[in-house]
Amino acid sequence: MSAAIAPSNRKLIIRLALFSALMFPVGYALVPLYTVFCNFSGLNQVNLTGVPANSQVDMAREVNIEFDSNVHDMPWKFRPIQSHVSVHPGEVIQVEFEVVNTRNEAVTGQAIPSYGPREAGEFFKKLSCFCFEKQTLAAGESRRMPVVFVVERNLPKEIGTITLSYTFFEVEGNKRAEAKAVQAGS
């Protein structure tokens, strides 16, 4: 072939190259289109469409949940963001606690929950809690930590208020024996 490109070929190659260059952003355009289309049509809500709203919530009843926070011989400040919430049994609720490390070094702590009255404990189901694992805070660090819970519908009628109390214990290192000792102390 000669070095010169025929004008008709040049015209066609420019068009074809432009077309394929445009198809690249089309791939990206599928991302917002997908979201828009799914929201518009509800197609992505596969597990939600036609399913009635959570029927497990007992709207007729309200239970008052009070929060209490303590630290056991630790340089931490620990408080619930809200002092109490009012919930319907069966409802999924999220609350938050705040903890601040006032010492000049990292400290590891483990929170131990307790319930008042005691028999409310078995009807109080925590789905997610900072007390499920040890918390390590760097020097001066403050942290907000969520608790997600459900109060079960079969909570005895006489219980109208539940107090959830957390106490933080210091865990020295990750040595099992010491951690056990701390737990035994509670």
Partner: peptide, 14 residues
């Protein structure tokens, strides 16, 4: 090819 290869290139770029 010119219609879909660029889309695939976009997907793997993502």
């Amino acid at each position: 090819i010119i219609a879909v290869m660029p889309v695939f290139a976009g997907a793997v770029t993502m």
